[in-house]
């Protein structure tokens, strides 16, 4: 029995990775849920918005590096992030103007908007490939570890190591900051309340003199900012590969639905629920069982990592079966 080492192992292999992955999903799901709440459709282009925005951030990062600007231990990408967000927002607002606004004015069926978002997805996907290619790209400069395994072992004298990468720490910090700012904005500011009012009751919001186009523009900008942030953090944490951002769409949708589409708090909770389930189910628990005095035969891995998307899917199905409005009562059905 070695509870201390078991705890460290759980922290190192489950809690930290799941928390940072959950934070990335939460930011993505927040964007999906905001767009759903205001524009009333599931945006299939969200994954590719993340990819496109991240590609822009990488380009700006390279540019900054080329002229010799960096942030020391912190990745230069963080400095490039606001520029990437601004550029990507301009593009996304352009798609709203040229694509979505038409269907919004016509009050088209949501599924037509979903279809239109597929078209936008194709274009963004192609643009991403065009500007940065399809290869895997690493763009995390600066220090790699906040706490490395060797350091941790030296400090604690435990046999089990623990590492905290800079990208993980930054992910958690940036996500906390973004959520704090967003929720403060939604609950305190006039524009944020107008957004909630519009999401709650579009017609009454119009009667109250809220300008729908302003609300929609604001929503796109916020959702894009969250998406590009999520994409950049994900890319720093793992690496950048355009196709991965299409695949992350499923866990993001699952997170948003679990939390209740249209409910921002739910999206954050959903992101962590999906991430923790995914990591817990695909992690081989053998090592931890060993520390606790068991000698299992197998790896004690419930599902191989190739099937991690199955976890989001199962969560999605369970929620649709038992509580289609999500855990936090979103709109919908």
């Amino acid at each position: 029995m070695d509870i201390l080492n078991a705890l460290v192992a759980i922290l190192n292999f489950v809690v930290i990775p799941a928390a940072s992955y959950g934070a990335q999903l939460a930011l993505g799901a927040l964007g999906v849920t905001l767009i759903y709440g205001i524009l009333r459709f599931s945006n299939f282009a969200h994954g590719d918005t993340m990819a496109f925005g991240t590609a822009l951030v990488i380009l700006v990062t390279w540019g900054l590096q080329a002229i010799g600007i960096d942030l020391g231990p912190v990745p230069t990408a963080l400095l490039a992030l606001p520029i990437g967000i601004a550029l990507c927002s301009v593009f996304v607002l352009g798609t709203d103007r040229t694509v979505y606004r038409f269907y919004r004015r016509k009050r088209s069926d949501p599924i037509i908007l979903v279809m239109a978002s597929v078209g936008v997805m194709f274009i963004m996907n192609g643009l991403t490939r065009l500007v940065i290619g399809v290869d895997e790209i690493r763009f995390d400069d600066g220090a790699r570890f906040l706490v490395s395994v060797q350091q941790f072992r030296a400090w604690t004298g435990l046999s089990e190591g623990l590492s905290l990468r800079v990208s993980q720490a930054i992910t958690l910090a940036v996500t906390a900051l973004a959520c704090w700012a967003l929720f403060r904005f939604l609950s305190r500011s006039r524009a944020g309340k107008a957004m909630r009012a519009y999401s709650d009751n579009e017609d009454l919001a119009l009667l109250s003199g809220i300008d729908p186009e302003r609300v929609v523009r604001l929503t796109w900008i916020i959702a894009t900012a969250l998406a590009v942030t999520a994409g950049t953090l994900y890319g720093l944490d793992k690496s950048f590969k355009a196709f991965n951002y299409f695949q992350i769409l499923l866990p993001i949708f699952a997170a948003a639905i679990v939390g209740g589409l249209g409910n921002p708090l739910g999206a954050v909770a959903g992101g962590f629920i999906v991430a923790f389930s995914e990591v817990a189910v695909t992690y081989p628990w053998k090592k931890i069982a060993n520390y606790l005095g068991f000698q299992p035969e197998g790896l004690l891995q419930l599902l191989s990592t190739e099937y991690k998307f199955a976890v989001s899917f199962v969560i999605l199905i369970v929620v649709l079966l038992f509580r289609p409005t999500g855990l936090f009562r979103g709109k919908s059905v």
């Binding site: 309340k193 107008a194 909630r196 009012a197 709650d200 009751n201 009454l204 919001a205 109250s208 809220i210």
Partner: peptide, 13 residues
């Protein structure tokens, strides 16, 4: 009304 907003926020809107 705006159902997920507080009474006060409804009046503000």
């Amino acid at each position: 009304i705006f159902p997920t907003m507080t009474v006060e926020e409804n009046l503000e809107m």
